[in-house]
Design a binder for these strands. Structure first.
Length: 470
RNA sequence: GGCCCGUUGGUGAAGCGGUUUAACACAUAUGCCUUUCACGCAUACAUUCAUGGGUUCAAAUCCCGUACGGGUCACCA
């Protein structure tokens, strides 16, 4: 049987890293077995719709390098791939279950349910629907239907026994049937519930492996009962533990935790993000951290997904990103990093800009950081206290400054090579070397004690400005 | 509260009964390199695997209890 996995997000226009990681696992599993990767949009809650969300999801997955074999924007035989367009399908299957006596109409109102809930609360018992509507006579049901009374369809759950859930990661989980609610399959607005739509779609779309968050582990008992009711074969379940934020709590937009797009906009490369995320809660058998997509596919083994949740660590992501940036081709790097440069460089030559950006390729952690790194070349000189103290630490420093200015005046072709020679001449003439030679020049020129290669720094500042500062 | 799951360092983690004095990586610290600054490189960093007990000649690895953390109990996904 052909392996088919699916990524099934809600169209909220927001993709947090836990979500993306699930997509990565699903994608890798599909590719590893030469299977299909399907995108399905779960929009059964009309109130959470966001315009353009589907395009957003496509864009995100595309940036990550995932090829979607089937989905709303490239439909195949299993469509439609948007749940709101499959409304009639769910209804048909829900009714089918009613027919078989495994589900029933429920006409209970919000108020009635509220009352039951309160009673349960008072007795400190979890609320379970008492199944009163399952005892309605055929005639009464028809009567209610004719009157147009709103209804939901609920699944009849067994009251005794246990349901076994088999998960590839967690093994066998036993769930007591007595805690299972007669779950709603079809809501009164005619839309299916998430759980129901999932089972129907996964079966109809021939999904073989369901990868999802661990928070669904308990719910899987209900899924299994549904598969049993239809006498359908169950997919393999792979529940994955959560990704926690940097503070160890749940990832959330509110906590300011980054989403994929936030990171992308800040200048994190998708391949770095993917590489980082795949190693959160999964480890390969080989001792290797940097992976290309084909390597990932070859090395992926769903059995090695971790049982415990893992904490997101920006520093490590930065390390991956730094690595990928420094490995970029020169031209690719320049085109990429220019998107993040916010300074006005219209009065500079392209040569100058490229030189500036290139010297930071091995330092840069993320695109937007270029603005911090480069800032000193766009503002007036400021000498901090430490630098000031250094300048006063030795009498010879004044001679270095003076000698260097003389050397600068002699330079005709202003380039890093000639600047290096000038520095060397100062070394010979004044008789200083090392820190005492380099620091005074650096501080006098830039105000800072650190920065890129000195000759490059001076070159970029420009001859005129240097002369003015010395 | 009931039920389910988890617990190896600041972080990601390997290990799954004996070549483990717990791999590797990030972070951190120190040093080296570069006549400066970064990059890079090297070294250090858990006497111990939440905790108590048990099984065993031998346990991070198996079993039980406890603690802690998380999840779940909707006409939300």
């Amino acid at each position: 049987m052909k392996v088919r996995t699916r990524f099934a997000p809600s169209p909220t226009g927001f993709m947090h890293l836990g979500n993306l990681r699930t997509a990565i696992f699903e994608y890798l599993l599909a590719r590893k077995y030469d299977g299909d990767f399907i995108l399905r949009i779960e929009d059964t809650d009309k109130s959470r719709q966001v315009d353009g969300a589907i395009e957003f999801i496509y864009k995100t997955l595309e940036l990550c390098g995932f090829k979607i074999d089937e989905g709303p924007m490239n439909e195949k035989e299993y469509g439609p791939y948007i749940q709101s367009e499959r409304k009639e399908i769910y209804k048909k299957y829900a009714l089918d279950l009613v027919e078989k006596g495994k589900a029933y109409y429920c006409f209970c109102t919000e108020e009635e349910l509220e009352e039951m809930r309160n009673k349960a609360n008072m007795r400190k018992r979890p609320f379970l629907y008492d199944g009163r509507c399952s005892k309605l006579s055929k005639e009464k049901i028809q009567e209610n239907l004719d009157k147009g009374i709103p209804y939901v369809i609920r699944q009849k759950m067994p009251k005794t026994g246990v349901t076994i859930v088999e998960d590839e990661i967690y093994g066998k989980i036993k769930i007591d049937n007595s805690i299972l609610d007669d779950q709603i399959l079809l809501k009164s607005d005619g839309y299916p519930t998430y759980n129901f739509a999932n089972v129907i779609d996964d079966h109809l779309m021939a999904i073989t492996h369901v990868i999802r968050g661990k928070e669904y582990l308990d719910q899987t008992a209900k899924y299994n009962l549904l598969y049993d009711a239809f006498a359908w074969e169950k997919p393999k379940y792979i529940h994955v533990a959560m990704v926690l934020g940097e503070d160890g709590t749940k990832l959330s937009k509110r906590n300011g935790d980054a989403s994929f797009m936030d990171l992308y906009d800040a200048g994190y490369l998708p391949e770095a993000i993917v590489n980082y995320l795949v190693l959160l809660g999964w480890s390969p058998e080989v001792n290797q951290e940097i992976f290309t997509m084909p390597e990932l596919i070859a090395n992926f083994n769903e059995k090695r997904i971790s049982k415990s949740s893992s904490q997101y660590d920006l520093k490590k992501l930065q390390w991956f990103n730094h690595h990928y940036i420094s490995k970029m081709e020169k031209d690719t790097y320049l085109n990429w990093v220019k998107k993040y440069l916010e300074y006005d460089v219209s009065d500079k030559t392209e040569k100058w800009v490229n030189h500036l950006l290139l010297i930071y390729q091995n330092t840069l952690n993320y695109g937007q950081e270029i603005n911090d790194l480069v800032a000193n070349f766009f503002k007036e000189i400021e000498v901090d206290q430490e630098a000031q103290e250094f300048m006063e630490s030795d009498a010879i420093i004044k001679d270095v400054i003076k000698a260097f200015k003389e050397e600068v005046l002699k330079i005709e072709d202003w380039c890093p090579e000639n600047i290096s020679k000038a520095i060397n001449n100062v070394k010979e003439n004044v008789g200083v070397k090392g820190k005492l030679l380099y620091m005074p020049i650096r501080i006098q020129a830039s105000g800072l004690m650190h920065g890129p290669e000195l000759a490059d720094t001076l070159y970029l500042i420009g001859k005129e400005k240097i002369l003015a500062r010395f």
